[in-house]
């Protein structure tokens, strides 16, 4: 809590994995593997697991992108070829996945394919696209964006 450390985000990630595991075991043992619906307890565990996962992930990312302590001033980035290549590869992957996502939706609306409405496939592809976009922006911020840290007066006239 003293600075933007990685201890709590790491703990949150480990805890989220434990909660996901608890949900899995809960579903397998109490509900049965063939049953698709989740119990209210499982939904609660999953909800906390997701929040902790997002929090842990963005916490570690924030430490990597912004550091653990800020120092006022302008901080210039250090661009290099490797992040550029990574960005291009991710962009190509994103285009491919976008095409695949549209195909998945067309399949789901096509009587000849039996309205193949696979929610796991559609959501998985969409989630991958969002994750790729997040990674591309993170790479841009880390290697190509000028960083500025302000030391602002405590009293301001915004919003009033």
């Amino acid at each position: 809590m003293y600075r933007n450390d990685t201890v709590v985000p790491y703990f949150a990630l480990v805890f989220s994995v434990a909660l996901f595991l608890m949900t899995y075991l809960n579903t397998q043992i109490l509900v049965g593997p063939e049953e698709k619906k989740l119990t209210v307890g499982s939904i609660g565990l999953m909800a906390f697991a997701m929040v902790l996962f997002m929090y842990g992930f963005i916490g570690l990312l924030s430490n990597w992108l912004e550091g653990s302590e800020l120092r006022p001033g302008i901080h210039q980035p250090e661009p290099s070829s490797l992040p550029m290549v990574a960005g291009v590869v991710l962009a190509i992957l994103l285009v491919v996945l976008s095409g695949f996502f549209v195909r998945a939706l067309i399949f789901a609306n096509n009587p000849e394919t039996g309205f193949y409405n696979d929610t796991t496939l559609q959501a998985g592809v969409f989630a991958s696209m969002m994750l790729l976009l997040a990674l591309m922006i993170a790479i841009y911020k880390k290697f190509f964006m000028m960083e500025e840290v302000l030391a602002e007066d405590e009293k301001g006239d915004f919003p009033w």
């Binding site: 999953m46 997701m50 996962f53 997002m54 992930f57 963005i58 990312l61 924030s62 992108l65 912004e66 800020l70 006022p72 959501a123 998985g124 969409f126 989630a127 991958s128 969002m130 994750l131 976009l133 997040a134 922006i137 993170a138 911020k141 964006m145 960083e147 500025e148 840290v149 302000l150 030391a151 602002e152 007066d153 405590e154």
Partner: peptide, 29 residues
Amino acid sequence: KIVGVPLFPQQAVMMGVLFLIYLAVATFI
């Protein structure tokens, strides 16, 4: 003093990244 990054563009970029991660995790589940 308040030591921090400006809302635009730096904080907005971090918020954008978090929103995309949010969509990725929540949509997948």
